[in-house]
Each structure stands twice: as structure tokens, then as C-alpha cells.
């Protein structure tokens, strides 16, 4: 019986909690700034469930390392708040994060955007396809699943729009990831969910078809890959170049599609400055809880 439990335990570790543990173990190593020329970290916002995140990003990072001729390590936090705090501390050499994050830490850390997807980002409000809700107003006081309270398209911008345009307040449920949001809505655990077009497009057809988009926010520049200012400009350039070169090859392109970053273009901080005027701060949740 002990053996059995042991086996079950080990199997379980491999699945969910194991990954979480691994991620936790990685985190304490992050605050140590990596010396240039030796090893660089790339932090990725946990938009998806960890396994999926690794499945998408590990090949990308490996390819990036090879092309840039740099040793780049993928760093993932278990939760978005953890990521945010790490970002604020400037723990990552390179980062893939939502533009608002970049903006919020631009004063303290000043991450420099390198590349972004040409396609803009749009937040969406989804309900079950067979939901009786026909208009946003009907959702007042209902539950809204979000990947993270501070997620740009899926939460901040959406909540701001609902508030400003429809005067609708919904009680927010943190579903931790975009996939979780969609599943929550699909199974009726929440009345509606906040997501972005790109993540919905990546869901399985079954899930996607089970949902209905009730509202779409205005467009905003997509998530950038940004570099910490401490990274030498030539290294930054090598990374930017590597991403752009990757998209020129079918194999590289296929890898980037998964992020999704269908057609990378050069990104600049100026692209994102417009968002400061949207008054999103009101909706920011500090501790992410």
C-alpha cells in the first residue's frame, strides 16, 4: 500500500503540483542579476496553465538562444501576482508581458520593448453560447472570470469599458489563466469571462464553439518581448534580430504562432504610452488577490 501511495504521489507530482513546485524552486534564483555575456533569463507572464506555457515557450527560448548565440533560460512564475512582483523588482533580463505591466514598471525598471506581434490585442467578454444573456447590461452584478485582475485586455480594459460604456459592475473571479476563464464560462461556473481574441482563438474548437463573444474592447498593441535596460544594447539587438529572423523561417514561424506572435515587428515604448490615458489604474489590483 505504501508503494501504491508512493506511486500515486509521484505520478501526481509529475502532473500538477510537481510543476508548481518546480516553478517555486526556480523563483528564488531569479533576483540574482545575471552577468552579461554569461546567462540571461526570459520571464513569461503565466497567461496559460504551466504545462501549456512550457510547451509553447521552451522551444521558442531554445531556438532564440541558438539564433542569438546567447544562453537564455525560461523563467515562469506560478501566478500572475508573483510575476508582477518579480517584474517590479526587475528580476528578468528579458520579459514577455502585457503592455500595461511594461508601462507600470517603466518608471522603476524601464524595460525596453524589442518586438511585438503586428496584430493588436483586443479584450473580449464571453458568455456560454446558449446563455440567455443578450446584452452587456444584463450582466450587471453577475460573476466575471478573469485570468488575472490586472490582465490588460481581459480584465483592466474590459472592466474599464464595462464601467465607462455600460455602467456595469461585475464581481470578479480570478480564474488564474485564460483557459480557466473559458472553461469557467463554458461549464457555467461564472456567468461571463474576460479574455482576449488571441487566447480564445487558441482554445480547442469545442471550447471556442461553446462560447459567444458579447463584447470586444478597442485594439491595443500586443504583448512585447522587452529587455531590461541593464542588458547591453548589442545583446538586445541580437535577441530582437533573432525573433525577427525566426519569423522568416517556416519552422520559426510555427513556433512563434503558438505564443501567439504571428508576425513580429519592432516594438517601441511609445506604442504603449497611449494606454496611460485610459485610466486603467483605477482597476488595478495591487496584490493581485
Amino acid at each position: 500500500m505504501n508503494a501504491f501511495f508512493d506511486r500515486v504521489f509521484r505520478r501526481f507530482c509529475r502532473r500538477g503540483r510537481g510543476l508548481a513546485l518546480t516553478a517555486c524552486l526556480l523563483v528564488p534564483a531569479l533576483p540574482v542579476p545575471v552577468e552579461a555575456g554569461t546567462s540571461y533569463t526570459l520571464g513569461v507572464v503565466p497567461q496559460f496553465e504551466q504545462r501549456k506555457l512550457f510547451a509553447i515557450w521552451k522551444p521558442v527560448v531554445d531556438e532564440l538562444s541558438r539564433r542569438a548565440g546567447l544562453e537564455i533560460r525560461l523563467v515562469v512564475t506560478l501566478t500572475v501576482p508573483e510575476f508582477e512582483s518579480a517584474l517590479e523588482k526587475g528580476s528578468f533580463d528579458f520579459v514577455y508581458a502585457n503592455p500595461y505591466h511594461i508601462l507600470r514598471v517603466s518608471d522603476s525598471q524601464g524595460y525596453i520593448p524589442l518586438v511585438r506581434d503586428r496584430e493588436p490585442l483586443r479584450g473580449i467578454l464571453v458568455v456560454r453560447r446558449d446563455s440567455p444573456v443578450k446584452s452587456v447590461e444584463e450582466l450587471a452584478g453577475k460573476t466575471l472570470a478573469v485570468p488575472s485582475p490586472n490582465a490588460l485586455g481581459a480584465s483592466l480594459l474590459l472592466r474599464a469599458d464595462l464601467d465607462h460604456l455600460y455602467g456595469v459592475h461585475m464581481s470578479m473571479v480570478n480564474a488564474r489563466t485564460h483557459s480557466s476563464v473559458y472553461l469557467n464560462v463554458l461549464n457555467g461556473l461564472t456567468d461571463a469571462g474576460g479574455g482576449v481574441q488571441k487566447t480564445l482563438a487558441e482554445q480547442d474548437a469545442g471550447i471556442r464553439d461553446g462560447l459567444r463573444i458579447l463584447y470586444t474592447t478597442r485594439a491595443m498593441p500586443s504583448h512585447p518581448v522587452a529587455a531590461h535596460p541593464r542588458i547591453k544594447p548589442d545583446v538586445r539587438e541580437r535577441v530582437r534580430k533573432a525573433v525577427l529572423e525566426m519569423s522568416a523561417t517556416p519552422a520559426g514561424r510555427a513556433l512563434l504562432d503558438e505564443i501567439p506572435m504571428l508576425s513580429p515587428v519592432n516594438a517601441f515604448l511609445e506604442d504603449y504610452l497611449v494606454m496611460r490615458k485610459w485610466g486603467l489604474d483605477t482597476y488595478w489590483v495591487d496584490d493581485g488577490k
Binding site: F12, R15, G16, R17, F48, E49, Q50, R51, K52, A145, V173, N174, A175, R176, T177, S179, S180, Y182, L183, N184, N187, L189
Partner: peptide, 19 residues
């Protein structure tokens, strides 16, 4: 169930789903 419990408490439906 032991594994599912925290995920359920934190609404991590996608992990539950994956698991």
C-alpha cells in the same frame, strides 16, 4: 481529490481539466 482540492478552491479549471 487531494490534488484537485486547491485547484478547485482557486478556480484553476484549466489545470483541473488538464489533470
Amino acid at each position: 481529490i487531494e490534488g484537485l482540492m486547491p485547484l478547485m478552491l482557486s478556480n484553476q479549471i484549466d489545470i483541473i481539466n488538464e489533470n
